[in-house]
């Protein structure tokens, strides 16, 4: 196996669906602020993680535990506990972002394999080299701001594995540095594990269509026949100088299925699917499709029509290859 397909699971049922659909690895998190998908009803208890690891291992799949938020100063116990529980479960790696948590894991759990979360936003040989040398990080999840050419150059300059997102929601910011959600709601993915926390989200329907609000701020209005998106500020539509437009990022989903062969050639080890907050129907369909893509690339077969197959599952009803295929330079 040369390309590892890393798939999301917000619940044990989604993890089973991912494994049965062909995931090589599944990533998940605990039911607290230690992971960046801390949404109501989502995530794993320690017992559920134990069962999930046993289930995945029995079928030849790995489990990676995301503990990828930034620990609160003076109150890091939940993050330390999460690392210990992950190791006890037999998980294959933990995905970390915070230097303090990395330091704790490296010094107190030396046998645990460490991956660097996208939340750490390490995208240069210097930054990645620091994490590899200081904490023994074995794999880096790259921010979604690099072109395939840049990834190829980067891979030649580092000696750790790289993992890149190939499908799902796009985060246009320097990840781990975004304060938009904090500005509006006081909570953020970096510290609380939630971007646009749902208790601050409201949808209102009237004759003009659907209005999405975050903490009272109207961030988009969709016409009755227009595809809706997630209520994230970065994908909001705002009126500036009399014209309404997406100031930061369109509500589109990443789909890099057509670039898998080039990513493999660029030296990428693992392909990541976003969507721990999505249901098991989404997980199963996306994983099954991308497993077919990976198998086809490795066997030299005709490409899989992933854009067509997955069109109905994507945010905003539109797909993009994102920064991988930069057009503006």
């Amino acid at each position: 196996m040369s390309l590892e397909l890393v798939c999301p699971a917000g619940t044990p049922a989604a993890l089973r669906a991912a494994v049965e659909a062909g995931a090589h690895s599944v990533y998940c998190g605990f039911r607290d602020e230690t992971n960046a998908r801390n949404f109501p009803g989502l995530n794993f208890s320690p017992d559920e993680l134990n069962d999930a690891v046993a289930f995945a291992h029995a079928r030849g799949a790995k489990v990676l535990v995301a503990i990828n938020t930034f620990a609160k100063a003076g109150a890091a116990d939940p993050w330390k506990r999460a690392v210990a529980v992950a190791e006890d479960s037999g998980a294959d790696a933990v995905i970390l972002a915070d230097i303090a948590v990395l330091d704790h894991a490296a010094s107190k759990h030396p046998g645990l394999r460490l991956h660097l979360s996208v939340q750490a936003a390490a995208a240069t040989p210097e930054a990645i080299g620091f994490y590899a040398k200081t904490f023994g990080v074995k794999r880096v999840v790259l921010p979604r701001v690099l072109s395939v050419e840049e990834i190829a150059v980067l891979n030649k300059a580092i000696d750790v594995e790289t993992e890149v997102f190939v499908f799902g929601g796009l985060c246009p910011m320097t990840e781990g540095r975004c304060s938009l959600s904090s500005y509006a709601t006081g909570r953020s993915p970096n510290l609380s594990g939630v971007c646009s926390p749902p208790e601050h989200v409201a949808y209102e329907d009237d004759a003009q269509g659907k209005t999405a609000r975050l903490a009272g701020f109207a961030i988009d209005r969709f016409a009755p026949d227009e595809a809706a998106g997630y209520p994230t500020l970065c994908k909001g539509r705002f009126v500036v100088q009399g014209k309404a437009s997406y100031l930061f990022e369109d509500p589109v989903s990443l789909n890099a299925a057509g670039l898998v062969e080039r990513l493999a050639t660029a030296g990428v080890t693992a392909l990541k699917i976003e969507g721990r907050q999505r249901g098991k129907g989404y997980v199963a369909e996306v994983v099954r499709t991308f497993r077919a893509v990976v198998d086809a690339v490795e066997a030299g077969r005709d490409p899989v029509e992933a854009e067509r197959i997955l069109a109905r599952l994507v945010e905003g009803g539109r797909q993009t290859s994102g920064a991988y295929r930069k057009q503006w330079r």
Binding site: G41, P198, E199, D205, A227
Partner: peptide
């Protein structure tokens, strides 16, 4: 996304119910 269903009210409660049913 494709507007087949419409939701309003407490989004956090809806999300919790959706995720509980999913699992």
């Amino acid at each position: 996304f494709d507007r087949t269903i419409a939701v309003s009210g407490r989004t956090d409660a809806l999300l919790a119910l959706r995720n509980a049913i999913e699992d």
